[in-house]
Simulated assay, not measured.
Amino acid sequence: MSAPPTLWEEGREPAPQVVALGLAAILTVVALDLVLVGQLTLFFDLWFVVVSLALALAVRPGDFFTVGVLPPLLMLGVFTLLAFVSPGAVAEPGDSVVQAVVSGLATHSGALLVGYVLCLVTLALRQRVARPAPGRGAAPQASKRAGSPAPRRTTTG
Rank of each mutant, 00 (worst) to 15 (best):
36 L>G: 03
15 A>H: 06
34 L>K: 03
24 A>L: 07
30 V>E: 02
52 S>V: 11
58 A>Y: 06
43 F>N: 08
27 L>K: 00
64 F>T: 06
41 T>F: 05
28 T>E: 02
57 L>Q: 14
14 P>E: 12
25 A>F: 09
34 L>Y: 02
47 W>E: 07
42 L>D: 10
59 V>H: 10
28 T>D: 03
70 L>C: 03
31 A>K: 03
27 L>D: 05
72 P>W: 05
34 L>Q: 08
72 P>K: 12
58 A>V: 02
26 I>K: 09
25 A>T: 10
36 L>S: 08
53 L>H: 05
28 T>K: 02
18 V>S: 11
58 A>P: 10
67 V>R: 07
15 A>I: 05
68 G>D: 11
31 A>G: 05
27 L>F: 09
55 L>G: 15
71 P>C: 08
42 L>R: 07
64 F>G: 07
26 I>T: 12
22 G>K: 01
56 A>C: 12
38 G>T: 03
23 L>T: 08
28 T>Q: 04
19 V>C: 02
60 R>A: 13
42 L>Q: 09
14 P>H: 12
51 V>S: 02
37 V>L: 08
21 L>W: 04
25 A>R: 07
17 Q>Y: 12
43 F>K: 02
68 G>P: 09
68 G>Y: 07
18 V>K: 13
14 P>L: 12
38 G>N: 05
25 A>K: 08
49 V>T: 14
29 V>K: 14
33 D>I: 00
18 V>H: 11
35 V>M: 09
20 A>N: 08
29 V>P: 13
52 S>Q: 13
29 V>R: 14
39 Q>F: 00
35 V>S: 06
24 A>K: 04
21 L>C: 01
25 A>C: 15
47 W>S: 06
49 V>I: 15
68 G>N: 10
26 I>D: 10
44 F>Q: 13
48 F>R: 09
40 L>P: 01
37 V>W: 09
28 T>L: 07
40 L>G: 01
62 G>W: 06
20 A>Q: 11
70 L>K: 03
17 Q>W: 13
61 P>E: 10
51 V>D: 03
57 L>E: 14
15 A>Q: 06
65 F>V: 15
71 P>R: 00
46 L>F: 03
16 P>Y: 12
32 L>N: 02
62 G>A: 13
50 V>K: 11
30 V>L: 04
44 F>V: 13
28 T>N: 04
53 L>A: 14
32 L>Y: 00
33 D>C: 05
28 T>P: 01
30 V>Q: 02
60 R>W: 07
37 V>P: 03
34 L>G: 03
33 D>H: 05
23 L>D: 05
25 A>V: 12
35 V>Y: 00
62 G>E: 14
61 P>M: 08
60 R>C: 05
27 L>E: 09
40 L>I: 05
58 A>I: 06
21 L>I: 01
68 G>E: 11
24 A>N: 02
26 I>R: 12
35 V>W: 02
52 S>D: 15
16 P>D: 09
64 F>V: 08
46 L>C: 01
19 V>Y: 02
54 A>Y: 11
20 A>P: 06
34 L>W: 07
24 A>P: 00
41 T>I: 01
